[in-house]
Nucleic acid binder design. Structure first.
Length: 638
RNA sequence: GCCGACGUAGCUCAAUUGGCAGAGCGGCUGACUUGUAAUCAGCAGGUUGGGGGUUCAAGUCCCUUCGUCGGCUCCA
């Protein structure tokens, strides 16, 4: 007999080898029907897998966060089964894991699967679901497994890497797959599935390996969850900054002549300048001094910095008078030259040097993506030169800075702390001190963070920040990196209180990260409807007919002189048409001016959200909007 | 870079089996003088991404090149 402890704390004795399914059935038939799997001592179990020793058992139903892992994994198998049915036995199966919002499976087969084939595969999957095939788990020796999977080269390769002597495989109808599990008890349990896309993927993500065909899909326990997810994808598509951006005349690309290098149009440049202005205010507040460095510098600099050795592939080069130059991919070497241009006392530290540095990095053609991944972009970069003792304080200041900046956009965020990788520079003690300083700063800030062991840069540990947008998507933006290498390479120092030369620590940090990228995130987050302070145009003036253009011009002058960004629509169109245009450009406020306004000197203000406020005194409107802008408010005032 | 899909007017998209390149929006011109999400009419706009080939004939078929899109991290 074994002892089973349930989540409510109750204990019961069962026969050894009892399954979670049987336990569930004993509790209630309803629970058994809803059960998808179980958590046994924290490990996910199939419903019918025997429990061999004293355990805590929690039955998983579709309400539990673990549920999708189980049923999506099963759906991945169902998809593989469908593909084998449709394309024949010569399909070679690779891997089919669960991912954040769904699953995929990689196949190696002669025929090309295209998006057009997805409905066919989906239909076959639904058939398999309808067949409600029982899913069985088998434990076999590795030798037996090699025999069983002798026609499946990828499975054999996976077997090579498994250290345990026994492995498990799962079988449903005619289909079986090497798999750790767990799975649903039968293929009929989850019905709400959708195949999303096909793509190529290298075996084990390594581009030296064969390119396989990958099918992505998703599955949900409830139909409305699936619908909601598909709706979210639709919404994300509608907000795609690559579509909205050109439509709102924010930016463009010229694909032939400057691929992956954005051009900002007048409306976009206004937003960017507001972002820079905001950032400058904060930089000033947090004690930074702005510098400006050259875009291209002699190749010698890049040899000394190590970029030639480690980053050459991503750099652009140019030549003049037989001298080789590199276009800067990073700002640090330039900043170091400024640091080196004078002698610092320990009293001067920390030195906080910032730059809106435009950098160029060659990115492979397949990875560029709108404003999110480009070849030329602007970093809100800064380098802090300080003593080891100052690291923690400085990190905390950077985190405060980050918090203040992100809050202004309403973003929540999380952080990752990446520690010493195997291949690293500098002694381990320095790493320890530095990592500890980062960790302490994170603790003090109270933000959510997780540790990525061994994921730091070779020159120092780092913290990355991920913001969450209005659709719940995460984006990496800010980064704080400690650097022990650059100060060594450039032999920089400060004079300590014993008049001895000391090596400062260098902290790289960026908060927006890339202005271009952050701009793209903002476009998607606000779906193009920027808060007033960021809006390219803040007020649209719409004369009822050309009789009122002079009055409209006067109003324009007034608002313009108050520092508002105003658009006067003097076109010969109807009011409705001009309202529509302003609406499409997502201009926050619209003022129609006609006979009534001339008489009363009071105005009706319409917002892009469709609200209309009547009979406003102009001075009140100006005051309110100016206040809204000054506060960088996320909400409209009316 | 690699796998797959795609590239037609400024934008969104049409164009039977290869058979006269079209529409809406936008633009221009004119009429209308407009009251809170599209007034009406006329006109202009194209080497069908570039280059090469097959054919009596290519937007359509083949080759090549450039670019765009979905992916290539999630380890049975």
């Amino acid at each position: 007999m074994i002892k089973i402890i349930l989540p409510d704390g109750s204990e019961k004795e069962y026969k050894k080898g009892i399954s979670a399914g049987e336990i569930a059935r004993e509790i209630s038939e309803g629970l058994f029907r809803k059960a998808l799997g179980a958590l046994v001592n924290g490990e996910l179990y199939d419903l019918n897998r025997p429990i061999e020793s004293d355990s805590t058992v929690k039955i998983i139903t579709d309400k539990d966060p673990e549920a999708p892992v189980i049923f999506r994994h099963t759906i991945a198998h169902i998809m593989a089964q469908a593909v084998v049915r449709l394309y024949g036995k010569n399909v070679k199966l690779a891997i089919g894991p669960v991912i954040e919002n769904g699953f995929y499976y990689d196949f190696d087969l002669e025929e090309k699967i295209s998006e057009d084939d997805l409905p066919k595969i989906e239909a076959e999957m639904k058939k398999i679901i309808k067949e409600n095939l029982p899913i069985e788990r088998f434990v076999i020796s590795k030798e037996e497994a090699k025999e069983l999977f002798k026609d499946q080269p990828y499975k054999l390769e996976l077997l090579e890497d498994i250290e345990d002597e026994t492995v498990t495989y799962y079988k449903q109808g005619e289909f079986f797959d090497l798999c750790r599990g767990p799975h649903l008890p039968s293929t009929g349990k989850i019905k709400h599935i959708k195949l999303l896309s096909v793509s190529g993927a290298y075996w084990r993500g390594n581009e030296k390996n064969k390119m396989l065909q990958r099918i992505y899909g998703t599955a949900f326990a409830k139909k409305d969850q699936l619908d909601e997810y598909l709706k979210m994808l639709e919404e994300a598509k509608k907000r795609d900054h690559r579509k909205i951006g050109p439509k709102l005349e924010l930016f463009m690309f010229e694909n032939e002549l400057a691929p992956a290098m954005p051009f900002f149009l007048p409306r976009g440049a206004k937003v960017i300048n507001e972002l820079l202005e905001f950032s400058r205010e904060l930089h000033k507040k947090y004690g930074y001094e702005e510098v400006i460095t050259p875009l291209i510098m002699n190749i010698k600099l890049w040899h000394q910095s190590g970029h030639w050795d480690h980053y050459k592939e991503n750099m652009y080069f140019t030549e003049k008078d037989d001298v080789q130059y590199a276009v800067k991919p990073m700002n640090c070497p330039g900043h170091i030259l400024i640091y080196k241009s004078k002698v610092y006392s320990y009293r001067d530290l920390p030195i906080r040097m910032s730059e809106f540095g435009k950098v160029h990095r060659y990115e492979r053609s397949g990875v560029v993506h709108g404003l999110f991944r480009v070849r030329s972009f602007t970093q809100d970069d800064a380098h802090i030169y300080c003593t080891k003792e100052q690291i923690e304080d400085e990190i905390i200041k950077v985190m405060d800075f980050t918090n203040e900046l992100y809050s202004a956009f309403g973003f929540e965020y999380e952080a990752d702390l990446s520690t010493m990788p195997e291949d690293h520079m500098g002694d381990e003690k320095t790493w320890e001190v530095a990592t500890e300083a980062l960790r302490k700063a994170l603790e003090k800030s109270g933000i959510n963070y997780k540790i990525n062991e061994g994921d730091g840069a070779f020159y120092g540990p780092k913290i990355d920040f991920h913001i969450k947008d209005s659709l719940g998507r995460k984006w990496q933006c800010a980064t704080i990196q400690l650097d022990f290498q650059m100060p060594e390479r450039f032999d920089i120092h400060y004079v300590d209180n014993n008049n001895e030369l000391q090596r400062p620590v260098m902290i790289h940090r960026a908060i927006y990260g890339s202005i271009e990228r952050f701009f793209g995130i903002l476009i998607e987050n606000f779906a193009g409807a920027f808060p007033t302070w960021l809006s390219p145009e803040q007020v649209a003036i719409i004369p009822v007919s050309d009789k009122y253009i002079d009055a409209a011009k006067e109003l324009y002058e007034k608002l313009d002189s108050e520092g508002l960004r105003v658009k006067l629509d003097a076109s010969n169109a109807t009011v409705g048409y001009k309202i529509r245009n302003a609406q499409m450009l997502k201009i926050p406020y619209m003022i129609v001016i006609g006979e009534k306004e001339l008489e009363t000197k009071k105005y009706n203000v319409r917002t892009r959200e469709g609200n209309t406020v009547e009979d406003l005194e102009l001075e009140d409107f100006i005051k309110t909007v100016k206040e809204e802008i000054k506060n960088r408010s996320l909400k409209l005032s009316y």
